[in-house]
Design a protein around this nucleic acid. Structure first.
Lengths: 341, 341
DNA sequence: CGTTAGCACTCAGCTAGATCGAGTGCTAAT
DNA sequence: ATTAGCACTCGATCTAGCTGAGTGCTAACG
């Protein structure tokens, strides 16, 4: 357990280091005013904090910087959430007041705003189709051999893909199929679509169309879970403004990771509800072990829809980002609620 | 007009510099074998070439590097197109043999391959809807106040957006509208959709639905030209592997530009058919004045569909990239032709 | 006359040494 | 328990000197 004085000193060091990116010395803390002890006393405490693993020294005769454990303690026990500024709040509010035609726009633009307000990189996962139901199915023939299959979900999400039309299927057959599918599949949750397709639709289909196994297979691919949420990235290059990322190779590593969808998904998988802070090596992807990721989920009627996140250096402004993500996730949830009605 | 010897020397310098990224000296050229003159002779020629503005010297006592004008001369007169390697050809061919469900996949993946094969950044503009016709229109109500409008083009392109349902419009009205629109708009080129909407559909619509001006307006936004071609980027970070881009600020400038759609469009606007090479300051966007952009259009039945491009340092391997883009654009055109049938 | 050998000169890049100063740890005084 | 004082450490910065790749010029050569 840390003493009050140790907590004050740790707070001061983390705050200073977040601002300046330079190792913090005992003298500068003493001069700040809020820790009214001489540099010598502070030095002693700093030595203790280092022994506890909360601080580290880049080299003898340099000041101290927080270790990952130090940041963790800071985030868990010392952080003061300042709330977000008038300006920022206004910007978010007026953004959500705008009229937008596609949820892709909303989510994409939300990512942009987050990166602008923080000067870090923002990563936003679009709403998952998880637990939504199928609203409408359509097959539009493009030419003799292929058609576009379109799926609309209850949330207004649209997915489409081109499918081959099996030989021997006429235009009238297609209409029959579409009608049947809409009758059988409307309002069926996506998780169940596959089984309903086999159990109910299969038999029915065989009555008036030949070669129905082939069709079923095509439909299945068309309806196959494209459940992967879409990823929106913004401000990826912001990391380069950080003094600790002046090295091109380090940066390349990180940006490469961000370009790779699978790595990103790995980062975001199985995140618990609410706000999460992953500091440095707490992240499951090695390339960003010098970064911290703060995430917040947004939900609708208790059901988590997606995640918004900020990626910055471990020396990031945790207080500001947490406040901002909290605010943003709630407003985004409100917006989605309005959207889904 | 350059003498044969000057051309040989310029070629040697450009080739060497492209490989090594180091200023090329007279001695190293002399030793290469293909220019059988002594360093002193070569030095004299180099001085002449510099006077002509084709070479420059980073500082006295360094070797020469090609100027933009030098690269231009090289590309216009000296370049040897080696054709592309067995390996690369195989990779592209097998890629196009794959089955893909959406053109977004095709084009996106093409971008990935280009960046992998070149180690530069690839930029691909998806097929423009220009000159395609409307194939199918659908309105799917999501709840009482909003619906998803879906447009399918003759090329299998799907666009969608959420629209508000004006008050007082019932489900049956919607069906009527959809039927009417499909009857009137099917196979109408997109450029004409707007006018047809006003002239033919407007009157017809007013017969059985009230408040039709409002609906028309909604439809117009729904059908409004979303003609902006989609941009696919890949390997944006590859620029960082180039020794002349070891500086984070330079890189940030370029990557920021790549994140900005408008800037990218500016780069690609009004590109003539076929292969184009834009060297350094020939590019209209200032941030990439130290880069070269090579582009190739791909077309279907004489109609240009889109553009594929490679962005690299001015010191890029023009011969290889030109060959590759040529090959890729032709295969992409073939693929699209098959796709459109 | 074109070509080449020779030579003095230039200059970025590297290395070694000197200096500086922010910051520490320890000890002794308060 | 706190603090003043002091010796010590070590990265950062600066300078001077050296090195070597490369040049331009001149004179000799075939």
């Amino acid at each position: 357990m840390l003493s009050e004085r140790q907590r004050m000193i740790l707070t001061a060091i983390v705050d200073d280091y977040i601002r300046s990116a330079e190792p913090v010395g005992s003298r500068s803390i003493s001069k700040r005013g809020d820790v009214a002890y001489s540099p010598a006393t502070i030095r002693n405490e700093m030595a203790d904090l280092e022994e506890l693993g909360l601080l580290e020294q880049p080299h003898t005769s340099a000041g101290r910087i927080p270790s990952n454990k130090g940041y963790r303690y800071y985030v868990d026990h010392l952080i003061r959430l300042g709330g977000i500024g008038e300006q920022d709040m206004l910007k978010i509010r007026s953004f959500f007041a705008e009229k937008m035609n596609m949820w892709e726009e909303v989510v994409g633009h939300a990512a942009t705003i987050l990166s602008q307000l923080t000067n870090y990189t923002s990563i936003v996962l679009g709403p998952e189709m998880f637990n939504t139901t199928l609203k409408h199915f359509q097959l539009v023939p493009i030419n003799e051999t292929s058609a576009v299959a379109i799926i609309v979900t209850s949330t207004g999400h649209v997915e489409h893909r081109t499918v081959a039309i099996p030989e021997g299927i006429g235009m009238d057959d297609i209409q029959k199929i579409v009608n049947l599918l809409n009758a059988k599949l409307a309002n069926v949750p996506f998780i169940k679509v596959k089984s309903v397709l086999h159990s109910e639709v299969g038999k029915e289909l065989s009555r008036f169309v030949d070669r129905c196994e082939h069709i079923l297979q095509v439909l299945e691919t068309a309806l196959a879970e494209n459940q992967e949420p879409k990823i929106f990235l913004s401000g990826a290059t912001n990391i380069m403004t950080q003094p600790e990322f002046k090295d091109v190779d380090k940066v390349k590593n990180i940006l490469d990771t961000l370009e790779e969808t699978s790595k990103l998904m790995q980062l975001f998988q199985a995140l618990p509800e609410g706000i999460q802070v992953r500091i440095g090596t707490e992240n499951s992807v090695e390339a960003i072990n010098q970064c911290s990721l703060i995430t917040a989920t947004y939900s609708y009627e208790g059901q988590s829809l997606g995640t918004i996140g900020i990626l910055g250096p471990t020396r990031m402004d945790y207080g500001k980002v947490i406040s901002l993500l909290d605010f943003m996730s709630k407003d985004l949830a409100l917006f989605m609620a309005r959207w889904y009605k």
